[in-house]
Each structure stands twice: as C-alpha cells, then as structure tokens.
Write a protein that binds this DNA or RNA. Structure first.
Lengths: 115, 115
DNA sequence: TGCATAGCTGCGCACCTGCGCAGGTATGGA
DNA sequence: TCCATACCTGCGCAGGTGCGCAGCTATGCA
C-alpha cells in the first residue's frame, strides 16, 4: 500500500506503515469537506438553538423561533436561509406564516447526540 | 408554563404554546454553547482529518499526521494544541515523539457518525 | 382600500480563524 | 560536544462570519 502522494513521499515517517492506514482512515477529502461543512452549521450557538428547537418540538414559525431563541427576526431569517441553502431545513408557507422543520437525516442524527 | 423571559414577553407569538416547548427544547444556553464549541472543533476539514485519522487508526505521531493529512507540521501542531486545550485529544511523549489520541467521549460519538 | 404584520434582503462593521513563515526548545545519535 | 530531528510557539495577513440596522415584499384583516 503506497497511499502517500508523490509530493510528500520523501518526508520521513515515524511509524511508516501507520501513515497509509491514516490516509485510508481520512478517506475522500470531499467527504471530509461535506462533514466539516455539516459540523460548521451546528457550530454556532444561535443556529444550534434553532435546530434543537425544530428537532425537538417540530415545525415552528420564524417569529416563534425568534422569541424562543432570543434572537431578532432578521438574524433568525438569515440563519434559516443558510440552513435551507444547505438542505438542512425546509419551510412550509401557510399564508403569512412559514413553519420550518429539519429535513436532513445526517443532521438529525447529530442532533440526537446532543444530550 | 411561562418560560418566556420578561424582556420578550410582549412580542406576539404565532403558536403561543409551542414557544414554551421550544424554549424547553433549547435548554440551558451553557449546554448549547458547549455543544456548539464541540461542533466548531470538527468544522474544519484539516482538524476533522486529523481526528478521523486518530479515531480510526489509533495513536499517531505529529509528523505522520502531517504527511497523512497533507498539512505541514506547524499547522498540525497548532490544530492539536487547540484540540488538546479543549480536552479532545491527549499526547503521550515518548522520547522526541509525541503520539496523540482522542480522549473525549462525546467527540468520539460524533466521529462514529461520520460514515 | 388602507394598514398592521410575517418574513426576507442588502449593506456594513466588528470580530474571529486558519495557516504560512521564521525561529525556538528538547531529545537522541555520531 | 555537535548536529539532526520532532515538535512547539509568536506573529501577521488574508479571508470568512455573525448580526444589527434599515428597508422591502407579501399576506390578511377591518
């Protein structure tokens, strides 16, 4: 197994065989990026609050999210826009009210781990 | 249940009863912060690569992590310093070599979810 | 029709973060 | 003792991020 790319094959290793294992463990950089992006969405206290509220109490309107989280509505709106663009939440419009819910299964799995 | 703080009790709600549920769902702000900080540590592709390598192949030296991840060693060192300060990893010094490993149980749980 | 409200958007500022570079410290072999 | 090496640290820059403010659109009620 020679997984070490040519541009760094000349560097000295400590445990040579384990380096290849580590490269295999890291896996596809695109997958790593996908997951780090996911984690980044949960890395803001306000966004995490919104997601926890949606995940644990079901669909909620923007105004109610603002009151519950203590944010003002532009901030909530912008956070939801980001989450919606990432495919994490979706909004159902009913008249003037838009109720959001969590639709991403991977993110739901992460939210379940938050005690 | 009147969980709405006084400073935002006058705002109009859409689904009044669900707001209290949402506040309860969000829970303690300090806990939310703790979790968002955890997620932030996994939100960088390089740090996540290091953690995946450590989690899936066991203890690794700094140099080997640098080769496996494609980072140069100051970057690895700084990332590990951050992770160590957060109590996520710990280093075992053996002569000139320091082998790091993941010691935070919550983070290990998150890493297991990364397919 | 007029108005209040739910939600969205653009802009700008303050703040943070990752990383490369240069250099420092400590360990072990010649 | 001298040197190579494994790792660490300070500094500075480029880039990104969150959010408040002001203002816009759209819906529903009187």
């Amino acid at each position: 197994m020679h997984l070490v790319p040519a541009d760094r094959a000349d560097r000295r290793t400590i445990d040579g065989h384990r380096v290849c294992d580590a490269i295999a463990a890291i896996g596809d950089p695109d997958d790593v990026r996908t997951w780090s992006d996911r984690f980044a969405l949960l890395a803001d206290p306000n966004r995490l609050s919104l997601l926890l509220a949606l995940h644990r109490t079901g669909p909620l309107a923007v105004s109610d999210l603002a009151i519950a989280s203590g944010m003002n509505d532009p901030a909530v709106s912008q956070a939801l826009r980001l989450l919606r663009a990432a495919g994490v939440v979706a909004g159902d419009k009913e008249g003037r009210v838009v109720r959001y819910r969590v639709v991403d299964e991977a993110v739901r799995g992460l939210l379940k781990q938050v005690s």
